[in-house]
């Protein structure tokens, strides 16, 4: 195992984060604070409670998930797309490093940054709402797994993308709507029955539901399904990346 290579990629990617610390941290924290103000305070004053939890607190897990998903995707996809774009990918391809080692370096760095931002937002939330975390270990496990799995997904997008438009395409056209429709700001039990059924096909519902359960003990779907969904998604992403490196798809000619 070339652990030195993993560490080198990780340090290099984290270096990029620290170089752009302001845009890395301030911007997601600011946009989350705006969500709290608009959804939590303005709309929350009309909704008050969802299943016994104040609306302001209820949206916290969804807001964290929204940011963590977006950050994981954009960090990891940019991390591997940029070397492709500027041509430095040659070095990765000619290095004595396996697909697992290269992926680990990029994905761990992207996930670390997303996790840090998720925790900062959680910290910020305490300033806006009264919040208790019922199952902190589960909460952290869900957060870490989400960061990892969506960083893996982002890594695939970064390899797939052949230009900057494609790099933005999936996060904008697929992930953001899935998160918004995945119960980030409401419980899917608030929807008409037909829409509830349709929502069950949205994988993000399982993530947000499980994550929200770790805060309030409330879930839209059974906890087991949430755990299964996130583990299944992680495995699927790893399998796709292994295939990419074996065949050289979009990497080696």
């Amino acid at each position: 195992m070339n652990l030195t290579a993993i560490a080198a990629i990780y340090r290099f990617e984290m270096g990029r984060t620290f170089r752009t610390i302001a845009q890395s941290i301030i911007s997601p924290v600011l946009s989350t604070a705006l969500y709290f103000i608009v959804f939590g305070t303005a709309i929350g004053s009309r909704i008050e409670q969802v299943e016994g939890v104040s609306y302001g607190a209820f949206i916290v897990p969804g807001l964290i998930m929204l940011t963590v998903l977006t950050q994981s995707l954009s960090n990891a996809s940019f991390g591997i797309y940029f070397p492709k774009f500027i041509g430095t990918i040659y070095e990765l391809l000619s290095a004595p490093a396996s697909f697992l080692e290269i992926t680990a370096g990029y994905v761990l760095a992207a996930a670390t940054k997303a996790l840090a931002i998720g925790l900062i937002i959680l910290g910020t939330a305490f300033f806006f709402v009264d919040l208790t975390i019922a199952h902190p270990v589960w909460m952290l496990a869900f957060l870490v797994l989400t960061c990892l799995s969506f960083s893996l997904f982002g890594f695939i997008i970064g390899i797939w993308a052949q230009n900057f438009e494609q790099l933005q395409l999936i996060p904008l056209l697929a992930v953001t709507p899935l998160v918004f429709l995945g119960g980030a700001f409401y419980s899917i039990t608030m929807l008409p029955p037909a829409w509830q059924t349709i929502s069950l096909f949205n994988p993000v519902v399982y993530l947000i539901s499980g994550f929200r359960w770790s805060f309030f003990g409330l879930a839209d779907v059974a906890l087991g399904w949430s755990v299964l969904a996130i583990c299944g998604f992680t495995m699927a992403c790893i399998a796709v990346i292994a295939w990419i490196f074996r065949t050289g798809w979009r990497l080696r000619s």
Binding site: A5, A8, I9, F12, G15, R19, I86, T88, A97
Partner: peptide, 21 residues
């Protein structure tokens, strides 16, 4: 093909690490 925003020494150190040294 080089990372434009990196320092010379950082990018050279990165290469050494990537190759397992």
């Amino acid at each position: 093909a080089l990372e434009p925003f990196e320092k010379v020494i950082t990018t050279v150190r990165f290469s050494r690490g990537l190759f397992g040294k």
